[in-house]
Design a protein around this nucleic acid. Structure first.
Lengths: 339, 339
DNA sequence: CCATCTAGTGCAAACGTTTACGCTTTTGAC
DNA sequence: GTCAAAAGCGTAAACGTTTGCACTAGATGG
């Protein structure tokens, strides 16, 4: 039924091993044999059986990824989709495929990783994690299995990882507001168990400190990466006796909620209050007003992650273990000079 | 190095075949042996080598999917991300993993499919296609390889496929406008080589005809699934001597551009013109004004597609080859009664 | 002219499973 | 107590590759 290497060998009048060597272009096969075998392969429509190949070579030319439980949030702000786009594009280019699986609970996630790793289904894994403590990282690290983290792990600072500099990005966002004359600046954050939330908060505080501005703890509100959180945050912040004139917001999606909240409370952006957020998703320029945002290059992170992981699988030690993708401040109409 | 079935067999004092039978819970193994073997597996940390298993069983417990070339567009309107979410969630639940690959050109796409199919890497394929003519469908159909189409193929109406009823959905959207008293209704379409564009146009025309409303060809503008298209369409339509009072728009993203275009031209939605679109992505309720939209249940389509495909892989013929996911009209502030 | 080297290829084992077939032991009916 | 059927398990072949080793023939060097 299936055309095997033996069929090709027979038709070409050579041994299976020769055919195999042609496939993996071994140097010691004569030009003539190579040509002959290749033409027969073409003729018979031969394709390598990856399972058999993987079984003996112990390599799959596949990288794995697990769809996180907080999937809905990560899809909304395009973090996951954009990462996937970058990863699939790059890995295909390097001759690898991407294997995706998911787990409904933390335990199931670990089970899934185990299946991939111990079942020899993948050669490496891309982890998308922003949790301060992530058991998947611990596991993979202990196994010495090739993997790369998109994000940052405070527990394992030296593992192969790719990220943007969230502290600096947040610093820049805050400084942008400061440069526009704002002195009362609030922060709408994400869940505090996420590294990204912590880092952006740090950058924000650092900027305030550097420019000798007061930090008002009531202007810092924690929520989820959902627009409802932004919406709700406004009812908290804007009902305070003293209100900020500008806000740094953890995520564009949250900013959308902030916009809605402000509009319902009768505030106009940027006239009454300036806002800036992170991710610069495609829809950020379509809001009213268009959002100033920090572009963190998600697609590029995915692309580079795949590239680095494959390098490390193929034993070419990348020069550095931690790559930082530069961010970019995109100013639109949601931030304006304080008058 | 790796714990194999033989190691388990040795430790349990049984033969490898018995261990194998325990794994696939064969009925003819005694309770006692099962318990014994299982505990040993646990103890040694045994995990099945999928490659070896696949090699002999000729099944991979993996489904394949190829990331289309028009990826960026499909990601923007969440079609692809939401499908993936549904697919991965369901397939994991059924014990399958998802394998993703891509192709930069049509030729590369076919090569990718060939790798997956002939290389025995997957048991079935999910195709996301809306093209009128798709060579991938022809290929898979000719190969009699299990696959399911998310979308509709006019060339192969009887293949396993899942879709929403775009004609009826568009009919309903149009009728919604008609029921609000609108009589001059335009249509902003997508690329005409896509089935979805054609179908929605048909539904729109059908509604107009059923309610004896005039069809003005100048109110039908074709574009891409990009907001620029919607933006550009407005400069065409709204500069006509006679303008529509309502628009049906092929996609939420396009509608975002329409909103921007209208606002720049000085028209207010829904006061001057009502608009309704398709997909009901999460951001549709965040625009100004919030968009009326037809929810076509993309996540559910992905989920069901995976389910059906796996059923058909496992030889349980699904009762019907073509499943229609019901759509849902979601009315928000962008459509209002004509005064 | 012999020894050595190299290019080119084949042989056979190995990778870790599954499964058809067959053998023993137990069970149950009469 | 006999015999057939069923239960429980092992043997060995097979799946389609890769790869270490060995072999041949010609080339090269002294």
């Amino acid at each position: 039924m299936q055309v095997t290497i033996k069929d090709v060998a027979k038709a070409a009048g050579v041994s299976p091993s020769t055919v195999s060597r042609v496939i993996s272009n071994h140097p010691r096969i004569s030009r003539k044999t190579v040509a002959k075998v290749k033409s027969i392969m073409e003729e018979l429509g031969y394709h390598q059986n990856m399972m058999a190949r993987s079984l003996v070579s112990k390599t799959t030319r596949t990288i794995g990824m697990i769809l996180p439980r907080s999937a809905e949030e990560l899809f909304l702000n395009f973090f996951f989709p954009e990462s996937i786009r970058g990863i699939v594009t790059q890995s295909t280019r390097s001759g690898y495929d991407l294997m995706m699986t998911s787990g409904a609970s933390e335990h199931e996630e670990l089970e899934a990783i185990l299946r991939l790793v111990r079942g020899r289904r993948v050669d490496g894994i891309i982890l998308l994690s922003s949790r301060v403590h992530d058991p998947l990282i611990s596991f993979l690290h202990a196994q010495k299995f090739p993997f790369i983290l998109i994000g940052r792990s405070p527990e394992y600072p030296d593992i192969l990882s790719i990220d943007n500099d969230n502290i600096q990005a947040s610093y820049d966002a805050t400084r942008h507001l400061i440069s526009l004359g704002h002195e009362r600046i609030g922060f709408v954050s994400g869940p505090s168990h996420l590294v990204v939330s912590q880092d952006r908060l740090v950058g924000y505080k650092k900027a305030l400190a550097d420019y000798n501005l007061a930090l008002n703890p009531r202007w810092i509100v924690e929520g989820e990466f959902l627009q409802e959180s932004g919406y709700h945050a406004m009812s908290l912040i804007m009902n305070l006796p003293q209100r900020p004139t500008a806000l740094v917001i953890i995520d564009d999606i949250v900013a959308f909620g902030v916009l809605r909240g402000l509009s319902e409370l009768g505030y106009s952006v940027p006239h009454d209050i300036s806002i800036i957020s992170f991710n610069n998703i495609a829809l950020s320029e379509l809001t009213n007003p268009p959002l100033s945002s920090i572009d963190i290059g998600i697609y590029q992170m995915g692309y580079t992650a795949s590239n680095l992981l494959i390098q490390s699988i193929e034993e070419q030690q990348p020069e550095q273990n931690r790559i930082i993708i530069p961010h970019r401040l995109v100013t639109r109409e949601s931030t304006k000079r304080l008058t």
